[in-house]
């Protein structure tokens, strides 16, 4: 360890010598007894006010009702404003009083303390190194590699105990991300109320939020999907149904009969990071994600035309059932939602 590293940078008398600490200037409260008394009264008044606000806080706690109208009193809620105002002012009075006390009445003589170098002294270092060496030698860790290595091995192995039990945090993904509840013949229904949709019900340019009919079906008086299970399935199966001029639509080969009378159905879950997409521009057929502004062209197979999403919106092939309602003809033919590593390795759908 060279001396140079211990060096504390110093400013020499270059080009001006240090004139030294300026002389202490007394404050008005140091010299004028009236001002000193006044400052004392100010501080005591602030502390007194604080107590008053605490009392007001207690009164407000019992006086103001809370309930379902958070906007009463200037849009804030009376209880909240009164409690918060009293609490805030009580605290501020203590704080300002203490600072005023320190500034006006406590001694304002600056004092000087000397620094010591951050490092230990050379003697301490040498001694510590010697102690460490003695300890290591007495343990014999250097002379007995068998013990050392087996201990290191045991410690390393113990690390597994810290990690392995975390395995049950969740199941393995499997191919769950590639499947949704959509299947051949399932009706596409409106997300509110669950009513099935007839092509004639929709106008050109209209967008309807849809869900699979199974979300609204019951079995033995209990909903088939409920609570968490419903949320999980909804996060993948939510769709939008749009009706456009059939001439505007330019389907990819193989998708020519995926629509019905200009009605197409797309996943509502953004392929970027999974926000539900909801901003529909009727004139341009663009669907914009409100989270990161990825924009998809629904007349052109859900292709990305702007924004950070890399992948088109998955399309759900549609048909009509015997009663003339919209149904899916299969599950999505690719994974919906945010992209992931194994996305294209497993093909989905029929």
């Amino acid at each position: 360890m060279s001396i140079d590293k211990r060096e504390v940078s110093a400013i020499e008398a270059d080009p001006i010598a240090d004139p030294g600490l300026p002389a202490h200037q007394p404050r008005p409260t140091d010299t004028d007894e009236y001002l000193e008394k006044r400052a004392e009264r100010q501080v005591a008044t602030l502390f007194g006010l604080s107590t008053l606000f605490v009392i007001l806080f207690c009164v407000s706690y019992f006086v103001f009702k809370i309930g379902d109208d958070p906007t009463e009193i200037l849009g804030f809620g009376a209880s909240n404003v009164a409690l918060g105002g009293c609490l805030g002012l009580a605290l501020l009075c203590i704080g300002v009083g203490m600072i005023q006390w320190a500034r006006k009445l406590m001694s304002d003589h600056e004092i000087v303390e000397f620094r010591h170098p951050g490092s230990s002294s050379d003697e301490d270092r040498t001694e510590t190194v010697a102690i460490l060496q003695t300890g290591l030698e007495e343990s014999g860790i250097g002379r007995r590699p068998l013990i050392r290595n087996s201990l290191l091995g045991a410690m390393g192995a113990l690390g597994i105990v810290a990690i392995l039990p975390l395995r049950d945090l969740g199941p393995l993904p499997g191919d769950k991300l590639n499947h949704t509840v959509w299947k051949k013949g399932m009706r596409v229904v409106q997300d509110v109320g669950g009513n099935p949709i007839k092509p004639a019900d929709m106008e050109i340019g209209q967008l309807v939020n849809g869900e699979p009919a199974v979300f609204f079906e019951e079995k033995d008086g209990e909903p088939i999907y409920d609570g968490v299970a419903l949320q999980v399935q909804k996060a993948k199966a939510a769709v939008v149904i749009v009706k456009m001029q059939p001439d505007d639509i330019t389907p990819w080969p193989g998708r020519e009969n995926w629509g019905v009378d200009g009605i197409l159905c797309y996943s509502k879950i953004c392929t970027h990071v999974g926000c539900p997409i909801s901003l529909w521009e009727q004139q341009t057929h663009h669907l914009l994600c409100p989270c990161h502004q990825s924009t998809f062209d629904l007349a052109d197979n859900g292709k990305v035309i702007f924004g950070p999403a890399a992948r088109h919106l998955p399309q759900l092939p549609l048909a009509l059932d015997d009663e003339g309602y919209l149904i899916a003809t299969s599950d999505f033919t690719e994974a919906v939602g945010p992209s992931f590593w194994e996305r294209d390795t497993i093909k989905t759908g029929e």
């Binding site: 804030f76 909240n80 404003v81 009164a82 409690l83 918060g84 105002g85 609490l87 805030g88 002012l89 009580a90 605290l91 501020l92 009075c93 203590i94 704080g95 300002v96 009083g97 203490m98 600072i99 006390w101 320190a102």
Partner: peptide, 15 residues
């Protein structure tokens, strides 16, 4: 004192 000032200002913000 400054702790009480910060606390107090946050109280007023909450209100």
């Amino acid at each position: 004192g400054f702790f009480f000032v910060v606390f107090g200002v946050l109280g007023l913000m909450g209100a």
